[in-house]
Amino acid sequence: MKTWDEVPFAGYILEPGNAESYKTGDWRSRQKPVLSQEKCTFCLLCWIYCPDGAIVRKEDAVEIDYYHCKGCGICSYECPSGAIRMKSELEET
């Protein structure tokens, strides 16, 4: 990490739009969505409803961006085909 003589002047942020590189998925606690590609119908409701833009839309499938997912579970709740299951992360550790 940067030392006092390396951090920018007075703590200013000099690169605009760098929030993109901030991995807010670090805040996620307890549960994360797990997607079953077999059950997914590519209806894109999860992509529409995700408040954090953590559902990434590919050409014919969606992926979950765990660097930004907060684990709220809205995608799982909205998914009409039961393709997204919330899994406890406590079990993993």
Partner: peptide, 22 residues
Amino acid sequence: PVTIGCVGVPEYYPEIKYQQEV
């Protein structure tokens, strides 16, 4: 564009304050 007055989390606050002291 620059951002002034952002959050200074404990990982950065001391460095920014010591810079001011110097």
